[in-house]
Amino acid sequence: MQVIQLIINGILLGGIYAVLGVGMTMIFGIVKLTNLAHGEFVILGAYGSTLLAQALGVDPILTLIVTIPCMFLIGMGLQTGLINRVMLKGSEPALLVTFGLSIILQDAMLLLFTADARHAGAAYSSTILKIGGINIALLDIILLVISLVTILILTMFLNKTYMGRSIRATSDDTQAASLMGVSVKKTYAIAMGIALATAAVAGLCIGLKWTFYASSGGSYLLIAFGVVVIGGMGSIPGTLVAGLVFGLAQVIGGANYGLLVSYILLIIMLAVRPQGLFSK
């Protein structure tokens, strides 16, 4: 019974990890950039949801109506104003610029929101459902649903719309895409906007599930990167499985060693199969 409980907990966490990684995977696969500031953007989303929910006295999930568009615009602006420019100089300067962004953001959040631990509470935060001897937190189910819906919408967008197709085409061949009338820079900006919109969702999940600090971005970045690595870049089904793997690693390691187990898993994966489990 305990094993089943553990596996279920792992699956429930997997959704959060998948949505944490999906934005990074997109940027990795489409813009060919490792965004070292992704963790900070997730935490920014977490602050947005937590503080807005407190200020307005509404359910944190409702704050997505505000945080998603805001983060989308931030992402577009960032790509247009900064990263597109730096990418002309090569991939290494672009990597270092996102590194610079991450430290700027981290300290800016520290200044703005102090070093206090934060947590977004909701009415259902401590409701536990008992199903056949297994305890499942209602919150975990809600978070899993939010994550899966986000990934489903993203998949539909990428497969069924002109804009989505143009994003996939750009990721396959930028020149051929521009011959079809696609502006590569604009596509990159939209992709970054979408990636940050998913960061807003991931931030909400993290704010509801755990306490977070202005400095929490780094460890979430590494998990997000792990999801990219295990899932294979740009692969959404891979992202889901990778999220599950990290969820289980977290559960197996427990409160003290969860992160360590995840890191070791990631290092092994990087050494053995850096191109990911799901790429050819």
Partner: peptide, 26 residues
């Protein structure tokens, strides 16, 4: 004015129909 580039340069991870539909992106 449309160019068919050397080496076809299909979007290899996309389906044939999605490739064609990309042509009507403008």
């Amino acid at each position: 004015l449309s160019l068919v580039p050397q080496g076809s340069r299909c979007f290899i991870r996309m389906s044939v129909e999605d490739n064609l539909i990309m042509g009507s992106f403008p």
